[in-house]
Simulated assay, not measured.
Amino acid sequence: MKKLLVLGIGNLLLSDEGVGVHAVKALMEERWPDDVDLLEGGTFTQDIFYIFKNYEKLLVLDCVRGSNGPGTIYRLSEDDIIKDESQNLSVHDIDMLDSLRMAELMGHKPQMRVVGMEPLKIDWDMEMTDPIKKVFPEFLEIIRQEIRTMLED
């Protein structure tokens, strides 16, 4: 069993909604330890539960709607997503929780964390907006830090 799956989710056709996929694609250009896999999940988060059985931990990269401005970066645990009903998260997070439940029914559920960014615009456009592009390098660095932390745990 591998230690960590880094899963970028979102829709590249909807501007800032694709920030998680853009992030995982950028991270795929870097070297990672053998016990880390990076995967573009797109928007099919409910259909990939069978992959989770191969990992101890799961790091999801996604856009997250919170109460702060565009470009705000969030670090969330699975408990944060379940407990904070006032948090207006992406639709993917609900599908992701369903996938985790299905993986648990199959006998193994990885520990999940989410690193997300507040979008400015979710509309037809393949480019991220300027405020998101500006914060994107910081987003990647926080993801790298989270990967290191998850590997050490």
Rank of each mutant, 00 (worst) to 15 (best):
M1V: 11
L4P: 01
L5W: 02
L5D: 00
L5A: 04
L5R: 01
V6Q: 01
V6H: 04
L7G: 02
L7E: 05
N11H: 07
N11F: 05
N11L: 02
L12Y: 01
L13V: 15
S15A: 14
S15Y: 04
D16H: 03
D16R: 00
E17K: 01
V24P: 02
V24T: 08
E29T: 07
E30M: 15
W32P: 02
P33I: 07
P33W: 06
D35R: 14
D37G: 10
L38K: 04
L38C: 05
L39F: 09
L39K: 03
G42L: 03
G42C: 04
F44T: 13
F44W: 14
T45Y: 06
Q46Y: 06
I48G: 01
I48M: 11
I48H: 04
I51N: 00
I51S: 02
F52M: 13
F52L: 15
F52S: 05
E56K: 12
K57W: 07
L58A: 05
L58I: 03
L59V: 10
L61G: 05
C63N: 13
G66P: 00
S67V: 03
N68Y: 12
G69V: 07
G69A: 10
G69W: 02
P70E: 03
G71Y: 09
R75Q: 06
L76C: 03
I81S: 00
I82K: 15
K83S: 15
D84L: 09
E85S: 09
Q87W: 13
N88E: 11
N88W: 01
S90P: 04
S90R: 03
V91K: 04
L97H: 02
M102E: 04
A103G: 08
L105V: 06
K109N: 12
M112R: 04
R113K: 12
V114G: 01
G116N: 10
M117I: 09
M117Y: 01
E118L: 07
E118H: 05
D125A: 13
D125H: 11
D125S: 14
M126T: 11
M126P: 07
E127C: 15
D130N: 04
P131F: 00
P131G: 02
P131S: 02
K133R: 06
K133E: 06
K134L: 05
V135A: 06
V135I: 13
F136C: 05
P137E: 12
E141H: 09
I143Y: 00
R144G: 14
E146K: 14
I147C: 09
T149M: 14
T149L: 14
T149I: 13
E152C: 10
E152F: 08
E152I: 11
